[in-house]
Computed example of a mutant assay.
Amino acid sequence: MDHLPIRRAILSVTDKSGLAEFAAFLHANGVELVSTGGTKKAMTDAGLPVTAVDQVTGFPEMLGGRVKTLHPNIHAGILADKDNPEHLTTLESFKLKPFDLICVNLYDFAKAAAAKADLKAAVEQIDIGGPTMLRASAKNFHSILVVPSPAHYARITAELKDNGMKASLTLRHEMAVETFKATSAYDAMICDYLGKA
């Protein structure tokens, strides 16, 4: 698919800079917003309608927030190949809708490490669901636009405005590369920290 219409998005971010504006732009252009905990609150506080992830999964956030998005109702919507009719039929059979945009940035592990948090406290700042969604979206860039940082909001907003809320394959490919750079740097940072702990 060369030009992907953006109709449904998950936003789940630690760095909330620019979030309200980016989410408001998406909402104003008819995009359904789905979100988790603190991100959902920030968007709701900005007056935006947001569907909670637990309404999509049918399960509450659990284990102190360790499990929120790790669910087939989320990942089937992220990993479905929109050019594969069997994938779309499978989604329909489970009454699931695909996602078109995933906006995720990760728990601030660097801050925990810099603050000399004890090992157990630092480990709690290792993001699991975020990298999983990012990697799944980057893998499936032919069918989804992944947004791994607020640094990309302006460019993505401009392209979507210019293209009738459609994301080009070129943009999706570039964002996939940026995403894998971000997740590999994140893992390298954690590996370095744990290797010295």
Results as ranks from 00 to 15, higher is better:
43 M>S: 02
37 G>R: 11
38 G>H: 03
36 T>Q: 08
17 S>V: 09
40 K>G: 09
39 T>V: 04
23 A>P: 04
36 T>M: 14
41 K>F: 05
36 T>W: 13
30 G>Q: 13
12 S>V: 12
39 T>R: 08
21 E>V: 11
22 F>E: 08
15 D>P: 09
15 D>H: 01
20 A>L: 03
12 S>H: 00
23 A>Y: 05
17 S>N: 10
18 G>P: 08
19 L>A: 10
28 A>K: 06
22 F>S: 10
31 V>Q: 07
24 A>S: 14
47 G>R: 01
18 G>S: 09
42 A>H: 06
27 H>I: 03
19 L>K: 02
15 D>E: 14
17 S>Y: 05
43 M>C: 02
47 G>I: 01
46 A>R: 10
30 G>F: 06
30 G>R: 06
46 A>T: 12
13 V>N: 04
23 A>I: 14
24 A>G: 11
47 G>W: 08
17 S>F: 04
23 A>F: 01
33 L>T: 09
14 T>R: 15
21 E>M: 06
28 A>P: 04
33 L>P: 06
40 K>D: 08
31 V>G: 04
44 T>R: 13
40 K>H: 15
26 L>T: 12
28 A>V: 00
40 K>N: 14
45 D>Q: 10
32 E>N: 10
33 L>D: 02
35 S>C: 02
21 E>S: 14
26 L>C: 01
46 A>Q: 01
32 E>W: 07
47 G>C: 05
39 T>Q: 04
47 G>T: 00
30 G>A: 11
23 A>S: 05
39 T>S: 13
38 G>T: 04
27 H>R: 15
38 G>F: 05
13 V>G: 13
34 V>E: 07
23 A>L: 02
42 A>Y: 02
34 V>M: 14
16 K>R: 07
30 G>N: 14
37 G>Y: 08
37 G>P: 03
15 D>Y: 11
32 E>L: 08
21 E>G: 15
44 T>I: 15
35 S>Y: 08
45 D>N: 07
46 A>I: 00
32 E>K: 15
29 N>Q: 15
14 T>E: 08
36 T>E: 13
41 K>V: 13
47 G>P: 03
36 T>C: 15
31 V>T: 14
15 D>K: 10
30 G>K: 05
17 S>T: 12
13 V>W: 02
36 T>I: 04
42 A>D: 00
24 A>E: 12
17 S>R: 15
27 H>P: 12
20 A>Y: 13
15 D>V: 06
28 A>I: 03
35 S>G: 14
23 A>H: 02
36 T>L: 07
39 T>G: 06
42 A>G: 11
32 E>F: 07
21 E>P: 03
12 S>D: 10
26 L>D: 05
21 E>F: 12
12 S>Q: 07
29 N>E: 06
38 G>Y: 05
16 K>Q: 09
41 K>N: 15
44 T>V: 15
31 V>Y: 00
14 T>N: 10
40 K>Y: 03
